[in-house]
Design a protein around this nucleic acid. Sequence first.
DNA 1: TTGTATGCGTTATCAT
DNA 2: ATGATAACGCATACAA
Lengths: 332, 332
Amino acid sequence: VAMTSFDVARLAGVSQPTVSRALRGDSGVAPETRMRVERAAAELGYVTSHLGRGLATRTTRRIGIVAAELTDPFYAQIVERLQSELEQAGYRSVLFVDRGDDAVTVHELADGSLDGVVLTTSCLDSAAPGALSARRMPFVLFNGDVDGVLSDAAVVDNFGGAALVADFLVQLGHDRIGAVFGPDCTSAGRDRERGFRQALAAKGRPLSPRLTTRVPISFEQGATSVQALMSHEEQATALFCTNDVLALGALDAATRLGMRVPEDLTVMGFDDINLASWARFDLTTVSCDLARLAALAAELLLKRIADPQGYHHRIVVPTELVLRGSHAPPPS
Amino acid sequence: VAMTSFDVARLAGVSQPTVSRALRGDSGVAPETRMRVERAAAELGYVTSHLGRGLATRTTRRIGIVAAELTDPFYAQIVERLQSELEQAGYRSVLFVDRGDDAVTVHELADGSLDGVVLTTSCLDSAAPGALSARRMPFVLFNGDVDGVLSDAAVVDNFGGAALVADFLVQLGHDRIGAVFGPDCTSAGRDRERGFRQALAAKGRPLSPRLTTRVPISFEQGATSVQALMSHEEQATALFCTNDVLALGALDAATRLGMRVPEDLTVMGFDDINLASWARFDLTTVSCDLARLAALAAELLLKRIADPQGYHHRIVVPTELVLRGSHAPPPS
DNA sequence: TTGTATGCGTTATCAT
DNA sequence: ATGATAACGCATACAA
């Protein structure tokens, strides 16, 4: 079932380059010739070879997406949005899963099989962005900044969003406020933590270290954090989890421990992922229009591919509080 | 930053084919030569071109995964598992999202950029499997059969699993049993429905049409189904949703309607996705080891790629009931 | 063990 | 408007 443009050419009675031109809709092909070629191609079930075209054009219409495990609903959601945006622009997505062990090397991304890369898991000190940059490989950072590398980025107002949470909790009257932070190696994690701490400090309510923990991001870690924090004698009345996945885990653990949310414990998240609005969670959180963020990231990347020399852009998407059912004033 | 094996060859003082051989670990290369080549390659930051290699070997080490939207946690989970299995075997995954509009055409899959395809969304009458088969393109069906096409497939015992649910509900004492079925165009949907109906009929409890509905598969559809079914005067006391995503939607709607699960309503699902075990859902469901199913599908596909002429295999994975907290005897 | 020559399937450049 | 020819970057058969 081998099929090349030569076969089509023979059947249509033209030369191979003419087949290439006709099938691509190149101008300067006689309408009648084009017809013949298209008919021949259809008859043979011919499909242009991706490899042949790629080698000749030095382009692949493929984008690498580096994400965490898709069992993390945050990543499932943004990969879905990125793939959709890229597909609409005629690009296919190659999925690279960063399972934390630095297994995604630059070699895999820079073997000429990709026109560009979306990085969604980069830390401040990650090597990939710098390496891609050095190779002139187009890439964009999704909600992340990296030290010392000029790059395009679409990021959330992480600092401001976290500050909104702090102000809100104080306003509700909470005094014993706890927090579950994610790793501080990412700019998102760092900024959310800083925003929260600074806003609390500004209200004269500095965060107690004993009501604070830092864990890898996962549903399970969110759950175990609650168990740990709630075993103190001085229990928090409100808990800020720096992202929704941790918050959902916290809600789950609270349920298992027989605590009522929000009567016994206020839980707040960040991201407003799909699950947050489900009735069983009804999570009060910080929304940042992830769909728009993905669209912006895709757009930045495609612009970079089209114009490798252009100025770099860093777009910040604003945040807002979404009040649902997981918050309340502290129990009296 | 263009870099070819010729550049490496020149720096190492050898011919281009020698570079190819040395870097691939081909036998018959002098250790000292190999050293020189490797050093030169490292110095230049050379990476073998995927397109060049692909064109020469007629192989790409890439697999297409056709799945539904990743916001469906079932698909997020299986794509994650498939990607992981394929990655371990040295293959990368290209993600194709079937958004229901038949947008994934065979042309996209058969342009020579993929060594094989995993189909997870095929209906009984889908065109893709037959077309891939005609083109001798390796593919495997994930939990699905297709009419009239010889193919490899890893499927769940859908019929048996659904029968387990029927027997269990009857045993619990339920009399007014309802069901939310998915589309009957897939073999999984069809078999689950048949298994459930036949097992109920065998117990002398045929399914009442008024307590039955058929909807596309999504969280939202599961929710609206409950609203519809529960507005009858004759309310069901137990509801079988033919997959967990529908069941989670049902739970969500039940919560919104102020119904208690399982006191007022028993809800059962099928698949045992990750979310089913979260405390906030605690869904009683049918488990079928999705991780194993994904591993089997990947294995079948890789075997097919290695031996295109081999016999086709259809592997059926058994099911078992997982009793959690969403079931109870009917309210008296 | 290594080098030479060729082919993989396209697009692009140049003639005609 | 079309055809001949040369890349694109690699692997492979063959020669040395």
